[in-house]
Design a protein around this nucleic acid. Structure first.
Lengths: 127, 127
DNA sequence: CGGAATCCTTGACGATACTG
DNA sequence: CAGTATCGTCAAGGATTCCG
């Protein structure tokens, strides 16, 4: 970005920086999931069925780095690692759920808009 | 995702479907920008400096398809196209700003968490 | 001016195998 | 169990060019 960002002020940097994780498909799911309490690595993996263990590790590392979750290792055999939301993570849950509620409430309108849009476009391709 | 999604219920599909655009770096910026009123293609491009015209076109198409913005073409020479938020788009602005406010208010905490995390990790790499 | 089409690079992500 | 490491794929996105 250049200095000519009059419409995109400094705040956008901050916002984008923080909500970058919102864009990450897995991060939100995991934060909401951990909103239900502390969980082990494999439990999260099973709950978020479809995620690879690599992505789960990477995602959890990112969330830990940003201060949203804590990682507790129990030096037992076999190893046991638990993840839990921090205060910051629990606070993030609030605006996240606001957005989630809006999404659920308005999903039909978006779906309708898409259907209408596609209905307008596809016939033209057949001309 | 498989049918075994007991922890990741149907609602997640809906939510993810809608907030997929939140993940898109440009979509949010553009929606917030259009929150300030109707704008022309090039004005948006200049405002969101750093976006390629390809991505701007693709992003605007997506927002139009989802019913967040309207696209008005004036058949003049040279062409003039204006984009404006729909009611749905203006409503989305609300939860989006909630999240944005949270991001701005807590950016420092995230930055601090990152710094602390990196400070713990980097020295170990030097061992 | 607004946008479509093409090419090309990059890195995100999955699959797999190995370790403490 | 909870990772780390390596490799291969594939599609998102930038740069460029042409069109109405």
């Amino acid at each position: 970005m250049k200095p000519s960002d009059t419409y995109v002020p400094l705040q956008c940097r901050l916002v984008n920086d923080v909500i970058a994780l919102v864009g990450d498909k897995w991060s939100i799911l995991i934060i909401v999931l951990l909103g239900g309490g502390r969980k082990r690595f494999m439990d999260i993996k099973r709950a978020v069925d479809g995620i690879s263990q690599k992505m789960l590790t990477v995602t959890l590392r990112g969330l830990e780095r940003d201060g949203y979750v804590t990682r507790t290792v129990y030096p037992t055999v076999p190893p046991k690692v638990e993840y839990e939301l921090t205060d910051l993570g629990r606070e993030l849950l609030v605006p996240l759920r606001t957005l989630g509620s809006w999404a659920i409430a308005n999903h039909d309108r978006v779906a309708a808009a898409r259907a209408a849009y596609d209905a307008r476009q596809l016939p033209q391709a057949a001309e």
